[in-house]
């Protein structure tokens, strides 16, 4: 069974080292070559390359070392209930009770978050009245918005109590939004200079 030995033979060290060396070198070469392309904002392209090649490096190195790309690891919560069809209600009751047993009354925490939200909003209004530059204000506002969003989602929506993997499931798609706004801002800056009226 030649095929089987093929499948399970470890990859020789020299192949690994060549590939591992190749990727950083390739990255540098690519950045240099793209930078030489005329009229392309070099920094952005370079950032793109780094940003896409680092994951690629991770993937390749994981594959080369024979590891899995994604490991669906054990949850840090030990009380995952076995799933039995038709059992949803019982499961919900159990998990709520479990939650109540293991956590002290959260009302205090809610009050705290309430005050935080209030104060942050007041700070924001204060900043709006201040004479800071537009750019500084924008950065501060975005920062405080994210702070508020984290508190609302984390505490009020109990996201902090969920498993890490679930949190990542919800947070990762936001990457696409960041990419989207990056593109739209680049676009509207260009449009500003090309408007007719």
């Amino acid at each position: 069974m030649e095929t089987q030995t093929l499948a399970h033979k470890p990859i020789p060290v020299y192949v690994k080292s060549i590939f591992s060396a190749l990727i950083p070198v390739l990255t540098l070469v690519l950045i240099t070559v793209t930078l030489s392309a005329k009229n392309v904002p070099g920094g952005t392209i370079a950032a793109l390359w780094i940003y896409l090649l680092i994951p690629a490096y991770y993937v390749v190195s994981r594959l080369l070392s024979g590891k899995q790309l994604l490991t669906f690891s054990h949850s840090n919560e030990s009380h995952s209930h076995e799933y039995v069809p038709g059992d949803e209600d019982r499961y919900i009751v159990q998990s709520i009770n479990h939650h109540l047993e293991h956590h002290e009354s959260p009302v205090k925490k809610f009050v705290k978050v309430f005050w935080i939200l209030l104060v942050v909003t007041l700070i924001e209004v204060g900043i709006a009245y201040s004479s800071l530059s537009k750019m500084t204000m924008a950065v501060l506002f975005m920062f405080f918005t994210i702070v508020k969003a984290i508190y609302i989602a984390g505490t009020f929506m109990h996201l902090k109590d969920e498993t890490k993997q679930f949190i990542w499931t919800l947070v990762l798609p936001v990457f696409f939004l960041i990419w989207f706004i990056f593109i739209l801002l680049t676009e509207s800056g260009y449009l500003l200079g090309h408007r007719l009226f």
């Binding site: 095929t3 089987q4 093929l6 499948a7 990859i11 690629a56 594959l63 080369l64």
Partner: peptide
Amino acid sequence: DYYPNNHKLELIWTIVPA
């Protein structure tokens, strides 16, 4: 043939097109 995978082959045809 029971031939489920071959990492080397897969790597080659990921990296060459890349």
